[in-house]
Design a protein around this nucleic acid. Structure first.
Length: 308
DNA sequence: TTCCGACAGTGGGGTCGCAAT
DNA sequence: ATTGCGACCCCACTATCGGAA
């Protein structure tokens, strides 16, 4: 069951959980063994050997949750988890389980003792889940809250990805994206300067964007933006960028990875665009970026620099 | 006839493994 | 040894098409 993007519900009758930034996983505990499945249907058991211990706590059960890697600050890091996601070789997985351990955030109980619980309302499934008393070094049942605004504020304070609101009366619908679960993400939008673009299937595939560098007239690279460019926006972007074609790369030397520069058409760094995104990666790139609008009212000088 | 929802397609940040260069 | 590419993970958004209203 998947969540639909939305805002905080105003009506009562909802439970609020933190949104965990990791990999969704269903755990099947049966016959003294634990098997894990990804959203795609692929089995991912061998990637996370530290969850084998779940066999002792749940009996016969099917659990739903999110695999995360917590930083020292206690915040999930998808970037760190990425190093573990693809590992299938047992020896390497065991080594990583010791050096970069994951935590399984269990937030739903789909089967217990041979009984299907998906037809029960959320509130009752949650009661059964909590009654299991699951707690361990590598897994947890994270808390649920009744106050949406307070939960959102706490997520913001702790630098989490957002909040998921779940209707208390809703049944579990496997594989379905349902409005009974709403994900309310913490997002930012700000202005960047366009330093080039890459043609794609469309005329404008993605924009290479950056922020003014210390060196005048140059940019530090912050990633590519291709999502959110509709037909009208594409026309406007081409009209603005075509006259600015430049022979040289306006980004500070060495800040644009080779793979990003491939096929790029450079422009004088003049056009300012507003970009919406989730978070930034450790090296400053934008995660889930999408184009919002051109800001013809702003000049690069008015866009805060790379440090701001 | 119009509207809406599901779906495919296009774009993004990543890692890993393998094949081609 | 490097580069390219697809397979998996996370995703947002647009355009399209068929069915419901």
């Amino acid at each position: 069951m998947l969540a639909v993007p939305g805002g905080l519900p105003a009506s009562p009758g909802w439970a609020y959980e933190f949104k965990w930034d990791g990999v969704r996983a269903v755990a099947v505990v049966r016959d003294g063994a634990v098997r894990l499945w990804a959203r795609s249907g692929a089995e991912i058991t061998t990637a996370y050997p530290e969850l084998a211990g779940l066999r002792d706590v749940a009996g016969e059960a099917v659990l739903d949750g999110e695999v995360v890697v917590l930083t020292e600050a206690g915040r999930p890091s998808f970037t760190l988890l990425a190093e573990r996601m693809h590992v299938r070789e047992p020896a390497r997985a065991a080594h990583l389980a010791a050096t970069l351990p994951i935590t399984y955030m269990i937030f739903d109980l789909l089967r217990l003792g041979g009984l299907d619980l998906t037809g029960l309302p959320y509130a009752q499934r949650r009661e059964h889940l909590e009654a299991l008393g699951i707690a361990g070094a590598r897994w947890a049942v994270p808390p649920v809250f009744a106050d949406g605004r307070a939960t959102y504020a706490a997520a913001m304070e702790h630098g989490l990805e957002g909040v998921v609101a779940k209707r208390l009366t809703s049944v579990y619908r496997p594989g379905l994206r349902s409005a009974d679960w709403l994900k309310v993400k913490l997002e930012e939008s700000r202005e960047f300067v366009v330093g080039g673009w890459r043609p794609g299937v469309r005329r404008v595939g993605g924009l290479l964007v950056g922020l003014p560098a210390v060196q005048p007239g140059r940019l530090t690279f912050h990633g590519r933006v291709g999502g959110g460019i509709g037909a009208a926006a594409e026309r406007a972007l081409l009209a603005a960028l075509e006259p600015l074609r430049a022979a040289r790369n306006p980004f500070v030397r060495g800040t644009v990875p080779r793979a990003d520069a491939k096929g790029a058409i450079w422009v004088q760094p003049v056009v300012v665009v507003e970009v919406k995104y989730g978070q930034r990666t450790p090296d400053g790139r934008l995660r889930f970026p999408r184009f919002l609008r051109i800001r013809p009212d702003l000049t690069p000088e008015e866009v805060a620099g790379a440090t701001g």
